[in-house]
Design a protein around this nucleic acid. Sequence first.
DNA 1: AGTTATTATGTAAGGGCTTACAGAAAAATT
DNA 2: AATTTTTCTGTAAGCCCTTACATAATAACT
Lengths: 342, 342
Amino acid sequence: MMTNMTIYDISEKAGVSIATVSRVLNGSSSVSEKTRKKVLDVMDRYGYTPNAFARGLGLNTMKTIGIMCADSSDLYLAKAVYYIEQLLRSNGYDSLLCCTGYDLKTKEQSMDLLISKKVDSIILVGSNFIYEQDSDNKYIRDAAAEVPVMLLNAVLKAPNVYSIVSDDYASMREAASQMIASGRKDILYFYNSASYSGRRKLAGYRAAMREAGLLRENGLLQFYTGSHEDIHAMAGQLEKVKSEGLFFNGVIAADDNLALGAVKYAQKNGLKIPEELSVIGYNNSLLTTCCDPELTSIDNKLETLCQHLTATLMGVLNGEKMPEEAVFSGEIIHRGTTLLQS
Amino acid sequence: MMTNMTIYDISEKAGVSIATVSRVLNGSSSVSEKTRKKVLDVMDRYGYTPNAFARGLGLNTMKTIGIMCADSSDLYLAKAVYYIEQLLRSNGYDSLLCCTGYDLKTKEQSMDLLISKKVDSIILVGSNFIYEQDSDNKYIRDAAAEVPVMLLNAVLKAPNVYSIVSDDYASMREAASQMIASGRKDILYFYNSASYSGRRKLAGYRAAMREAGLLRENGLLQFYTGSHEDIHAMAGQLEKVKSEGLFFNGVIAADDNLALGAVKYAQKNGLKIPEELSVIGYNNSLLTTCCDPELTSIDNKLETLCQHLTATLMGVLNGEKMPEEAVFSGEIIHRGTTLLQS
DNA sequence: AGTTATTATGTAAGGGCTTACAGAAAAATT
DNA sequence: AATTTTTCTGTAAGCCCTTACATAATAACT
């Protein structure tokens, strides 16, 4: 396979003009079956591959989608990236991956970079790309002026921006309600980011607690310190709360990692799960089956979200009119860390 | 930021030729400080970004590296991809990600695709890209004829192929030796792939067992069924072995997932860990701290490997002569699932 | 057979950049 | 001040495709 052939070489060997070769390349209709065959023959006899740059220059697209995610080593985000990449490829698109970290400045830069690489669209994987302060979302609007922007797990109403979300609010509200119904009154909400989905989840928790008259000032516990993998540090955070005299017999966590921190805390303190401490996580990840008892968690149908996102994007790229927002509901998967409703 | 400016516009506004603008763009030395400043000024006054395709066409590179991995949602691979992506970007390269799955045919296709996209190199993340049957590795040699190929956790001696590996053999041998030294005699090896690193690990286990005169015919247990996340299925596999009358009081697993399957098995059967069953995993992943007791595991220094891989690649791309193979040793991280050496 | 409507092919002009080469300007040398 | 050297800048020829437009070949009509 020699890569260094050009359309001229092919046209010569096939005895046609370069225009015809190009037409064959692009599946243009107006080529007779006979010449098409002839050209294709020559092409794969010589193993010709068109030059992607020249192609891009002419067509002004390289069939590549930019995927941004804060941290592709995060269990949940990694899975999302995986699904999306697969789906895009099955649609003939490649994925340019950018792990941006959580810093706005870096996100902006990555965005510019992707656009300068002429991606056909940008997918933002994860709710942390949306800021509460709306002016901080300008970078997304700017990007959307160039290419369609897809949001997974976040909503931003803006032209050329499409949002696919799980109904975190409802899921969390339901989770909290169920825990309350099972007899718990002192339920801590354990989270670590003020991201879009974080805010929605929190609101869901608060709604359920308020409804039951159980909302407390100090029921919120934010985990700032350290990495999302440091389960001991998470457990430590709960120790601290406990030592400060706050009683709790339930923890609702914004993700499975944090929930596992709660489980670890219970194990260290000899608390029986779920009798003395109930725990609910979020994402229904691999982690749920790692601990004992296993973790009740909210499944937010990631694969479905990704499928829908990809389908929407393909529609948009084909010039079809697509819904700007799609909401899917989640599901609570009951396992050992919660009591059955009494 | 209007993207639709060309080098001509800039040259005009700055009152210089397009060649000069191009030189500024490429940091060519022979531009006077004065004009450079002037041009740069105009550029960011108008927010000019050069067209990536045209640039690629001229330079014949787009500063993009192809990353192939079987499954970026796998904890370990995801982490590797993450490190590599970060490192590449800090070196001014972008990453085109291809999740290929485990099928050879798909791998070949992805390879061609990446090459046709004109990546500057291809990085194969994970040992599953190397096949025992050497003819199956032809696709790598073919690719290496076009661009340098980097292997993470696998070795293939071929021109333009560079291998960065952890010494799985030694690590596994040491792990097995230690478990033997702690008094275990009936140690099962639990694995699920015949990948390159899988074979090396297995060999390490066998060496240690043979050395101690403990190697058994039926000490090997392969996990075929289901996904690498299905811990229950893994536990089930062990149940089955047990029910067939095979006694074991130690499990050495080829990765942490499998090890967790062993832990789960013990929990289900009321076996005390580590007294009645010792377990060692591999990768020292997040999973190690999820269970109770926590999992002893082999840390194969993934971040170091990735750093080295990237550094080697950068050297190669700069035309420097680089070592074709680099081996790093791992480290056993002791946690609760193993006994101390007696 | 002669004319018009279709379809297939070729010609040539880009697309936005890089870079060899030549020429102009500035600096260094006599 | 004249000459050589060095440094900077411009012209123009690619890089490899796509595609509007024009032309040639074929088919479909009187």
